[in-house]
Design a protein around this nucleic acid. Structure first.
Lengths: 239, 239
DNA sequence: CGTCGATTTGAGATTCTTCAAATCTCGTGG
DNA sequence: CCACGAGATTTGAAGAATCTCAAATCGACG
C-alpha cells in the first residue's frame, strides 16, 4: 500500500482536492459496518462515535469511543474485515483520508512513522485502561473513570478545562461501555449526584470538583500523555 | 526515527549481526517496567509474557498476553513512557529489534506498511474481544473464551490443532485476565472439569471437544483472522 | 396532544466476592 | 530418599454488588 505520488515532492497536503473529503453522518448512522473493509480512515472534526462488539443474544460491549480530533480508526488500515461496528452517537463531520494517502504520509514525511506510532501507543493505552476499568473497578469507580476520561480528552483537544462538559451518551451507552446494566448505571449516577460528585443533565455533565471525582475514580491521566504532543493529529487538524 | 541505512540497498535482513539479538528472560522477570521507554520491540521465540496495569491498592488487570510468534509490543514504538508492565510467565527467548531498524523495515520493504497495519489490526481486534469478554460474558464464558483463544493462537503458530495444549498460567493469572477472583476461577474450573469441557493440570489443558468449548464461550475466531496471513511476523519468524 | 425513547424506582434473585482455613504440589536442602 | 516450605489449589460459609423483571414517570419532538 506504499505508493509514490506527487506528495513525495510537494510534501503532504491534506487539503489538496483529491486528498480531502468531508463526510457527514447523522446520529445512529454507521461509519463502518462490521465485516466491512473501509479503504480510508476518518479524522473527526465534530461529533462522537462509538465502536462496539455484539454477541448473538444481544449483549453489547462498546470497546471505545472517538471524539473531535480523534482518528477513527487506525485499525482500519489492516486489510482484514472489521470485527467491530462504528456508529455515530451524535451528528458527525469527519475528514476522510484514503489509506494509500495515509501510508504515503507515514513513509514520506520526516516524522510520519513517529506520528503513527504515537497514535498506536495512545489507542493501545486507552484500550488497556478500559480493560482495567472493566475488570477491576467498582461501578462508582467505573462511572467516574469514564467521566474523567471524557473530560480530559475533550479538554486536551479544546485546550480548556471546564466543569461543564458535553455528555451526549445515554445511560444505555454508558452501561455498554462499562459492562453494567442501565438500571445499575442509573442508581450509581443518583448516588454520585447526591454526593455532589457529578450531575448529568440535558446532554451535559457538571463536575463541581474535578480533582475529587478523579480521586474517586483512581484516574491517572498519564495514560493519555500522548494526546498532548500528537504530531500527526495536530498536523492534520491545523490544515 | 526513520533513518537510512545499508538495509535500504541490501534489503532487510534481521539476521545481520548488528540487527539481531537474542534475549532471554527468567520466569517472573520483567521484559519492560512500567514508565520505562524501551528502544526496541521483541519477537517472541519461546515462552509466555503478560502485560498488566495495577491500581495502588493492589488490584491488577492483565490486559493481554504474548505467545511464541507474537510481537511484544508494537505500542513500544511510541515515544511515550509505558503505562503498563510486561512480565515473563515462563522462561522466555526473544529476538530484539531496535526501533530504528523496525521503522526502516516498515518504510523500505515493499509490504512493510501493510505488515505493520496488519499487526495493529490484530492487536486491536484481540483487545476489543478482551473488552467484550470482560464486560459482557459470564464467568464460565470468560474461562472458556480464554482457553479457546489460547488454543487457537497456539494452533495458528504451531500449525497443528490439538486437544492437549500448554497452559502455564496460574488461577491467579487467569483471574487477573478475566476480572474475577481466584476463588471463583477455581470453582468455575471445577464445574468445567465436572462437565467434561476442559481439564487443567500440570501446566497443560486437555480439551476433549474443542467445538463444544468454543460454543459455550461464544468464541468466534474471525477476530484472529489476521494471524493466518501475517507477513511481517512470518517474514521475521522464518529467518 | 400523543408517542417513543430515556430515566427512575421497587423488590427479589443471582453471581461473584470476602474471609478463613485445609490440602496439595513441587522444588530444595539435608 | 525424605522432610521442609512456599506457592498454588480447593472447600465452606456468609455477605455484597449487581442483575432481572416489572412498571411508573419524564422529556423531547412531530
Amino acid at each position: 500500500m506504499i505508493t509514490s505520488t506527487a506528495s513525495q515532492e510537494s510534501g503532504f497536503k491534506i487539503h489538496d482536492a483529491d486528498d480531502k473529503q468531508m463526510r457527514r453522518f447523522k446520529t445512529n448512522q454507521y461509519l463502518a459496518h462490521i465485516h466491512s473493509r473501509p479503504d480510508c480512515v476518518f479524522l473527526l472534526r465534530r461529533g462522537w462515535v462509538i465502536r462496539y462488539r455484539q454477541l448473538r443474544d444481544g449483549r453489547r460491549q462498546i470497546t471505545g469511543f472517538f471524539l473531535q480530533g480523534d482518528f477513527c480508526d487506525v485499525a482500519w488500515l489492516s486489510r482484514q474485515p472489521l470485527t467491530q461496528a462504528f456508529k455515530a452517537v451524535t451528528d458527525v463531520e469527519a475528514v476522510s483520508i484514503h489509506e494509500g494517502k495515509f501510508a504515503d504520509m507515514v513513509v514520506h514525511r520526516p516524522d510520519g512513522m513517529t506520528a503513527l506510532c504515537n497514535e498506536i501507543g495512545l489507542q493501545s493505552a486507552i484500550n488497556a485502561e478500559h480493560c482495567l476499568t472493566l475488570g477491576r473497578k467498582t461501578a462508582a469507580e467505573k462511572l467516574t473513570q469514564l467521566f474523567s476520561e471524557i473530560s480530559y480528552r475533550l479538554g486536551a483537544v479544546s485546550g480548556t478545562g471546564s466543569s461543564d462538559v458535553p455528555m451526549p451518551l445515554t445511560q444505555q451507552h454508558i452501561a455498554d461501555i462499562l459492562g453494567l446494566t442501565p438500571i445499575h448505571v442509573n442508581r450509581v449516577m443518583r448516588d454520585l449526584r447526591d454526593a455532589g460528585i457529578v450531575t448529568v443533565r440535558a446532554r451535559r455533565m457538571i463536575i463541581p470538583d474535578l480533582g475529587r471525582m478523579q480521586r474517586l475514580a483512581q484516574f491517572d491521566p498519564r495514560y493519555l500523555a500522548a494526546l498532548r504532543q500528537h504530531r500527526l493529529r495536530n498536523h492534520l487538524w491545523h490544515q
